[in-house]
Write a protein that binds this DNA or RNA. Structure first.
Lengths: 190, 190
DNA sequence: AACTGTCTTGGTCGGTTGCCCAATTCTGAG
DNA sequence: CTCAGAATTGGGCAACCGACCAAGACAGTT
C-alpha cells in the first residue's frame, strides 16, 4: 500500500495511456500529450518508465489481462450453449466505441512489430484459449480446443467490426454463433 | 494510358504506402520515408495528394477493394459447404505476416478516427457481405445475411490472430467453421 | 534538526514531422 | 521550333518528438 500511494502517478500514466492508444493509435501517443492528459509533469514519464514504448507495452498488457481475467472469472457456469448467449449479452452492453475494443486491436498490431510485446500478448491469448477450452469441454462439443481458437478470434473480429458498424447487435449474431457449438449433423451430407 | 504513364509516381506512392502502413502502422508513415521508399522526391507527395492522410485513405481503400473484389470474383461456384474449404485453403496459402492482412486491420482502426475513411470502409464491407449473402443463400443455410456478417468478422479475426500466432492453420479451424454453415439440429436440445 | 533516498520540476538536446513554395525541368500540342 | 502546362526539385518553415539532466521539493528515519 505504500507503493500504491507513491506510485499513483505511474498508475495514472498507464491508465491514460490506455485511453490515448484507443483514441489516437499506438504510434500517435506522445510523452507530452500523455503527461498533459494525466495531469502530470512531462519529465515524469521517463522517470517512472525506461521508455515510452515500455510504458505502452505495460499499459496494454495489464489492460488486456484485466479484461481477460474478468471475462474468465465471470464465465457462466451453465451449459456453454446457454452460456454463450450470456456472454454475448455482456458484450452487447459495451458501447460500440468502447476504448477496450480498440485497445485490443491496437495491441495486436503493435505486437506484430515488437517481439517482447508479442510474447506477452500470445501468452495472454494462450491462457484465454486454455480456459475457454476447459469451459467448452463438457463432452457435448466437438473439438473444444479448436472451437475455443475460433471463438476467441471471432469475438475479436466481431468487436472490431462492431466498432465500425454500431448496428451490429448481439441478437443478430447469437443464433449463428450458437451453430459453432452444435454437434455435426448425424447424417452424412448429400 | 497517357494517365497511366504520367501518374506512375502516384501509383508507386499508393503502392508503397500500403506496404509501409502494414510495416510500421498507420500513424507512423511519414512523407519522407514514404517518398524515399518509393524512390521519389519528397515534395511530390503533396503535389499528387492534398495531404498525407488523403494519400493513406486512398491507398487503403483501393487496396482493400482490390482484395475483396478478387475474393468475390473467385468465389467457388460449388456448394458453400465445400466452397468454404476452398476459401480457407486459399487463405492458408498467404504467409501469416502478409501485408494485406495487417493493412485491413490498420485501416479498420484508422476508420475509427476518420469519418470519411469510415464511410469508405463500411461501404466495402457492406458490398462484401451482400455478395457473401447471395453466395450462401442456396436455400440450405439458415439466416444467410447474419451468417455472412459473422463469417466476414470471423475471417478478419482469424487473420489477425494468425499474424500473431503463425501456427494457426486452416486444417484446424476448417471443421469448426464448417459448423457455422450446418443446419440447426432437428431435435430440440436436452 | 540534520540527513538520505525518492519524487518532481522545468528546460534543453538533436532529430523528425507535415506542409509549403519558388525555381527548374520535362513534355506534348500547335 | 515554340511555348504553355504539367511534373519535379531542393530547401525552408514552425511545430513537435523521445530522451536526458541538473536542480529543487519532499518524505521518512535517525
Amino acid at each position: 500500500m505504500s507503493t500504491s500511494k507513491s506510485h499513483q502517478v505511474r498508475h495514472d500514466l498507464l491508465e491514460t495511456a490506455r485511453t490515448l492508444i484507443a483514441e489516437r493509435g499506438w504510434t500517435a501517443v506522445s510523452t507530452r500529450t500523455l503527461a498533459h492528459r494525466a495531469g502530470v509533469n512531462p519529465g515524469l514519464v521517463h522517470y517512472h518508465f525506461p521508455s515510452l514504448r515500455a510504458l505502452l507495452n505495460e499499459a496494454a498488457l495489464t489492460g488486456i489481462a484485466q479484461v481477460i481475467d474478468q471475462t474468465l472469472t465471470h464465465l457462466p457456469r451453465t451449459d456453454p450453449r446457454q452460456g454463450l448467449d450470456q456472454l454475448l449479452g455482456k458484450l452487447d452492453a459495451y458501447p460500440p466505441d468502447d476504448p477496450a475494443t480498440v485497445l485490443f486491436t491496437e495491441a495486436y498490431l503493435a505486437a506484430t512489430r515488437d517481439t517482447e510485446l508479442r510474447r506477452g500478448i500470445t501468452d495472454l491469448l494462450q491462457r484465454l484459449r486454455t480456459h475457454l477450452t476447459t469451459w467448452l469441454d463438457d463432452g457435448h462439443i466437438a473439438d473444444p480446443a479448436n472451437t475455443a481458437h475460433v471463438l476467441a478470434a471471432t469475438a475479436d473480429g466481431l468487436m472490431l467490426h462492431r466498432s465500425l458498424d454500431p448496428h451490429l447487435s448481439a441478437d443478430q449474431v447469437a443464433p449463428v454463433l450458437r451453430r459453432l457449438l452444435n454437434p455435426p449433423p448425424a447424417k452424412e451430407q448429400r
